[in-house]
Every structure is written in C-alpha cells, then in structure tokens.
Simulated assay, not measured.
Amino acid sequence: MHLITKEFLSYGVAVLRGKVIAAFLFAAVPAWAGEATILAFGDSLTQGYGLLDQQGLVPQLDKWLEDNGHKVRIVNGGVSGDTTAGGAARVDWSLTPDVDAMIVTLGGNDMLRGIDPAVSRDNLDRILAAAQAHGIEVLLVGMKAPGNYGPDYKAAFDRIYPDLAETYETLYFEDFFAGLGDAGPAEVQDYFQPDGIHPNAEGVKKIVAALGPKVVELVQNIQ
C-alpha cells in the first residue's frame, strides 16, 4: 500500500491551509459559463505533491477529459496531509454555489495514523451528507488498507467506501491506485517518486486513465 508519509501537517494547520487554498481558488478563478464545475476534494494525492503544475492529478485529469470530448472546470481541493477529519471540517465552505459535483479521495492519512475505521467512516459520512445537502453529485474514490494492521482493521476500513457509496447512491471507484495494476513491487515503483509513496507524472497518467471513465459518468450525471 502506498501512503503519504513525508509532508504531514497538524490538523489545525491543514484546515487553515485548506481554507486559504480554497479561498484563493474560488475567488481567483471565475465560473466558466456553460461548463460544469467539479471539486477534486482530497489530500496530497489530489493536490499533486512533488509534481510540476501540469503533472498533477487535476491538470492531467482535466486534459484527459478534454481529449475525450468533455470540457469541465476542475478545482483542485487537495490539501497535503489532510485526513477525513480535516475534510469533514472544510467540506461545507468548500462546496461553493458554483460546484456541481465532487470527487472525494480521502483516507490514506487515516490509515497511516492507524485511526479507528469507525472514525474515518463517520467523517466520510459527514462529507457525503454535506454533499447531499448541497445537491452535489459525488464520485467516491476508495482506498485499500495494508495488511500490516491486521485482517480486522483491513476488512473494516476497506468496507467503508462501498458501504457509503451504496448508502448515498454515489458513483464509486474501488481503488485510487487501480490504474497501476497488479505488477510486482519493483515494477510498480517505476511509477512513484523517490519517496516511494507519491506517484510520479507517469504514475498519475495511469491513474487518470483508469479513473477517467468513472469521472465521465460523473460529468454525464450533471449535464
């Protein structure tokens, strides 16, 4: 399992940084008439940690969608080091009136900290409930817990995403890293930065290619 380890921020700092980022993005980028706006809501995997501006998840996904005939506005709502608790704390003010849909990718940092899956579930539930209250379409992107926490932890954590997707009737993508396939550790590491944790530009490209069709479904749901 590839988890975020290097750039963790304290809960309070992450929330504050998220507010600053969100305020800048939503104030500085005007809504594009006639185009749907999707909020990519996550942690450093969404934010694009360690990558050049056009190499991160959001710009690569935006280009993939455009190349496949779908012109949308994707807002980067990724905050490095964020947990599901941080996401739950900032979701309401992140869902500005121009947001039509949201991609939720949170939970990796919860796993690293060994947070009780019940707590992570409750936080993600709050995020999805907020989206529902705002009338926002959601694509929930799952994460897979590593086996070193034990089978009970893994089973409890892995069930969070499909259960909540069913409860809230959201679109669901099983695993953020699915695009990297089932290759052995040595081959998979070719798609990661030197930290062995965050995908490099080529890794993001593969992740986007796998995730993209599900995002197309999200776009179709709001158009």
Rank of each mutant, 00 (worst) to 15 (best):
M102T: 15
M102L: 15
V99R: 02
V104H: 05
P97A: 14
D98E: 15
S94Q: 13
D98Q: 15
N109M: 06
M102W: 03
M102P: 05
N109L: 08
G78P: 10
G107T: 07
R90L: 09
V99P: 04
A89K: 13
T84K: 08
T96I: 14
T83N: 01
N109Q: 12
G81V: 02
L95F: 03
A88H: 11
G108N: 13
D110I: 00
D82Q: 12
V79S: 03
T96L: 10
M102S: 12
D82K: 05
D110V: 10
V91W: 01
G81W: 03
N109H: 09
A88G: 07
L106T: 10
L95D: 03
S94T: 09
D82V: 06
D110W: 01
N109K: 04
V91F: 07
D98H: 07
D92M: 12
G107C: 06
D100T: 00
D110H: 08
V91K: 08
S80V: 12
G87L: 09
G107N: 09
G81I: 01
N109C: 00
M102D: 04
D82C: 07
V79Y: 00
A88F: 09
A101D: 01
T96G: 03
G86P: 09
R90G: 10
W93S: 13
W93I: 10
T83C: 02
V79R: 05
L95M: 06
P97Y: 05
T96S: 05
W93H: 15
T96N: 01
V79E: 06
G86N: 12
G108Q: 08
R90F: 07
T105R: 00
M102Q: 10
N109W: 02
T105E: 11
V104L: 11
G78C: 05
G108H: 04
S94D: 15
P97K: 09
V91E: 01
M102C: 15
T105A: 10
L106C: 11
R90A: 09
D98V: 15
G87A: 11
V79A: 06
D110Y: 07
R90S: 10
I103T: 13
V104R: 06
R90N: 12
G81K: 03
T96Q: 14
D92A: 12
S94V: 03
A89F: 04
M102F: 01
T84R: 09
V91D: 07
A88R: 10
D92T: 15
G87N: 14
N109I: 00
A88D: 13
